[in-house]
Simulated assay, not measured.
Amino acid sequence: MGVLLAVVDQLTKNWAVANLPELDPQPFLGEILHLTLLYNSGAAWGMGSEITPVVTGLQIAIVIGVIVFAVRSVRSLWYTLALGLILGGALGNIHDRLLRPPGPFHGAVVDFLELPHWPVFNVADMAVVAGAILVVLLGVIGLPADPAEAEDTTGADDSARADDVARADDVEHPEETR
Results as ranks from 00 to 15, higher is better:
residue 100 R to Q: 08
residue 4 L to M: 15
residue 37 L to S: 05
residue 94 I to M: 03
residue 45 W to M: 11
residue 110 V to N: 01
residue 77 L to E: 10
residue 12 T to R: 04
residue 51 I to K: 02
residue 158 D to Y: 14
residue 172 E to N: 12
residue 173 H to Y: 14
residue 135 V to C: 05
residue 13 K to Y: 02
residue 11 L to I: 09
residue 170 D to H: 09
residue 139 G to D: 02
residue 164 D to G: 15
residue 25 P to Q: 01
residue 134 L to P: 01
residue 138 L to E: 07
residue 28 F to D: 08
residue 132 A to W: 01
residue 132 A to L: 11
residue 113 L to K: 04
residue 57 G to W: 06
residue 4 L to Q: 10
residue 155 G to I: 11
residue 120 V to R: 00
residue 87 L to W: 00
residue 6 A to T: 07
residue 127 A to C: 11
residue 51 I to W: 11
residue 95 H to E: 14
residue 98 L to V: 11
residue 127 A to E: 01
residue 178 R to W: 12
residue 52 T to E: 03
residue 127 A to T: 01
residue 158 D to K: 15
residue 70 A to L: 10
residue 87 L to Q: 01
residue 172 E to F: 14
residue 16 A to C: 08
residue 169 D to V: 12
residue 99 L to Q: 15
residue 146 D to L: 11
residue 63 V to S: 08
residue 28 F to K: 08
residue 80 T to N: 06
residue 9 D to N: 09
residue 144 P to N: 09
residue 4 L to I: 03
residue 18 A to Q: 12
residue 94 I to H: 02
residue 103 G to L: 06
residue 84 G to K: 00
residue 95 H to T: 13
residue 76 S to W: 05
residue 40 N to Y: 00
residue 88 G to H: 00
residue 141 I to A: 09
residue 78 W to R: 09
residue 23 L to S: 10
residue 172 E to M: 14
residue 115 L to F: 08
residue 124 A to Y: 01
residue 151 E to D: 14
residue 143 L to V: 08
residue 31 E to P: 08
residue 135 V to H: 05
residue 170 D to V: 13
residue 166 A to L: 12
residue 54 V to S: 05
residue 129 V to R: 01
residue 176 E to I: 12
residue 80 T to L: 15
residue 142 G to I: 07
residue 28 F to Y: 10
residue 25 P to D: 02
residue 10 Q to Y: 07
residue 88 G to P: 04
residue 2 G to N: 03
residue 145 A to L: 02
residue 103 G to M: 14
residue 55 V to H: 05
residue 48 G to A: 11
residue 24 D to R: 13
residue 157 D to E: 08
residue 91 L to W: 14
residue 16 A to E: 02
residue 130 A to P: 04
residue 10 Q to D: 09
residue 146 D to N: 13
residue 19 N to F: 08
residue 55 V to Q: 04
residue 71 V to H: 07
residue 138 L to A: 04
residue 112 F to W: 02
residue 1 M to E: 13
residue 144 P to W: 06
residue 33 L to N: 06
residue 51 I to A: 09
residue 120 V to D: 00
residue 173 H to V: 10
residue 118 W to S: 15
residue 135 V to G: 06
residue 66 V to C: 05
residue 149 E to H: 14
residue 17 V to P: 03
residue 138 L to T: 02
residue 70 A to R: 07
residue 107 G to V: 00
residue 68 V to N: 10
residue 66 V to L: 11
residue 35 L to Y: 02
residue 136 V to L: 13
residue 29 L to Q: 09
residue 108 A to N: 03
residue 77 L to W: 10
residue 135 V to I: 15
residue 75 R to C: 06
residue 113 L to A: 10
residue 102 P to W: 05
residue 65 G to Y: 15
residue 2 G to Y: 04
residue 130 A to C: 12
residue 65 G to V: 07
residue 4 L to W: 08
residue 171 V to G: 15
residue 60 I to K: 12
residue 137 L to Y: 12
residue 142 G to L: 04
residue 83 L to Q: 04
residue 47 M to S: 12
residue 35 L to G: 03
residue 150 A to F: 15
residue 108 A to T: 01
residue 119 P to Q: 07
residue 141 I to M: 13
residue 111 D to S: 00
residue 96 D to N: 04
residue 53 P to D: 07
residue 115 L to V: 07
residue 107 G to E: 01
residue 143 L to W: 13
residue 81 L to K: 09
residue 82 A to Q: 05
residue 84 G to H: 04
residue 135 V to Y: 04
residue 44 A to S: 13
residue 166 A to Q: 09
residue 24 D to L: 13
residue 99 L to C: 08
residue 144 P to I: 06
